[in-house]
Computed example of a mutant assay.
Amino acid sequence: MGILPVIDAATEELTEIFKDLHEHPEIGFTEARTAKVVAEKLRAYGVDEVHEGIAKTGVVALIKGKSDSGRRVGLRADMDALPIHEETNLPYSSKNPGVMHACGHDGHTTMLLGAAKHLAKTRDFDGTAVLIFQPAEEGLGGARGMLAEGLFDKFPCDEVYGMHNFPNGAPGKLGICKGKAMAGASFFDIKVQGKGSHAAMPQQSRDPVVIASALVAQIQTIVSRNVAPLDSCVISVTQIHAGSAYNVVPDTAILAGTIRYFKDEVYEMAAERMTALCDGFAKAYGVEIGIDLRNIFDVLVNDADLSDAYLEAAADIVGTENVSDGIEPATGSEDFADMLKAVPGAYIVVGHSGTVPLHNPGFFLDPEVLPVGASVMARVLERRLPLAAG
């Protein structure tokens, strides 16, 4: 089948949309310009309904097929960027200092707009397409925000599908990991409240820097000595903040980081051990240590049957030789997991040229993949809402 004709004809338009979004990235829950572009394009494509302002900047559109079986299939894209200074030197590099589409959400948004254009023009399906443009995926709770505002109550879906780019140097190859595909995640902040002093007289202090450093080392033993070898868990301390002068032992030290996991019981154990370590260090050193643990992402679970359906749709576009159900689980996280807890569905990755990793200031999403992703998203909806023969 190849690229769907309406999308193929719109390739230049989609590329321009993508470049415009890339030039104007916005952090989660501030995607006002992006949402406006999305809503304007959807209305221009002739969708039946456009709903704005869901979870601040989210957009949902409805497209009715040629007939109405009563079934509804959702397609979702994320819109937010990251607080990263772009270093790609692209002619359409970010114009917003310190903000960059370093994860490809500009591409995801463009792909879903391409699918919308095709679906609104052809309407070769039986039911309703629900197009979800989600804000704030990057750890800010955009999916949970939309769900809290009644996303699937107001716009019910029988199934929902998402997509993410993958800079693996393999353009046009798509894959799915069935079952548990991406890790759940929690963020943590730990405050060590010690006692400051002159650095030349540390005996007068209860040095939070020394305590925090020892605590970091002990946190690393949680995975190595508490998690079963065949289970997966990652605990990374990613921030240490303390002190402001060469000759002062500070009062406080702050640690922050993340836990990634595939089993809730593993996370609960890790959280209990971290809390116990903080309590123990507080008693041992005679200080106060507080810990704040916040679940940010659920484990992303792909429905096995709907994964197969997604791969079959992808094969229609790129050929069976370019799709795979052998993708390994990833310790990265994705808040589409929250939508998949509410509605069954699947999440596919689409490869493209370039190998600079996601969340890197040099990340590059090859625009050549845009019509591929758009066609696959449109095709899975058509397959899941087939028109009656004749």
Rank of each mutant, 00 (worst) to 15 (best):
P91S: 02
K283Q: 06
R260T: 05
H101M: 05
V192A: 09
A120F: 04
F166H: 11
T88I: 07
M274R: 03
S244N: 15
V50H: 04
A136C: 02
Y261L: 04
I348D: 00
Y261P: 02
I235K: 02
L277M: 04
L75P: 00
R72E: 03
R294K: 08
I291R: 04
D48Y: 06
D366T: 12
F363K: 03
I7S: 02
Y246A: 10
F262L: 13
E272K: 14
F155I: 12
V234H: 01
G184F: 03
A116D: 06
F188E: 02
S353E: 14
D303W: 07
L230M: 13
G362Y: 11
A102T: 12
D106V: 08
S375W: 03
Y285D: 10
G141M: 07
S375I: 05
K341E: 14
F155Q: 09
T275G: 10
T252H: 14
G169A: 11
P229M: 01
P171H: 15
D231I: 11
D153F: 12
T275P: 04
D231N: 07
G104Q: 11
V210K: 15
K36H: 13
A10F: 05
D106P: 07
K180I: 05
K283A: 00
D158F: 00
A9H: 07
V372E: 03
R76M: 04
C233V: 11
F262T: 09
T34D: 13
L385I: 13
I291V: 10
A315I: 12
R123Y: 09
H241D: 12
E23V: 10
S353D: 11
E12G: 10
M274F: 06
E40A: 05
V210T: 15
V376P: 03
A136F: 00
H51I: 02
V192T: 07
G53T: 11
P25I: 08
T320H: 11
L174K: 13
C278K: 01
F336L: 06
Y92H: 14
G46L: 07
L112T: 02
Q134K: 06
C233P: 00
H22G: 06
A183I: 04
R384S: 15
A129N: 06
F29W: 09
K41Y: 04
L311D: 01
A200F: 04
A77Q: 06
D303P: 10
G169T: 14
I219R: 02
A115S: 08
F297H: 14
V223K: 00
H22K: 11
A337Y: 10
D303G: 08
M377I: 01
I219L: 11
K154P: 01
G332I: 09
A102L: 05
L112K: 03
G351M: 03
R260Q: 01
A337S: 14
N322V: 01
Y92W: 12
E288R: 14
E86R: 08
K263R: 00
I291L: 05
P386A: 15
H359D: 01
I27M: 12
K191A: 13
I219Y: 09
F187P: 06
E138C: 13
L365I: 12
R383D: 15
F133C: 01
E49C: 08
G332W: 07
E16P: 07
T258L: 02
G196K: 13
L21A: 09
R71G: 00
D264Q: 06
F336T: 04
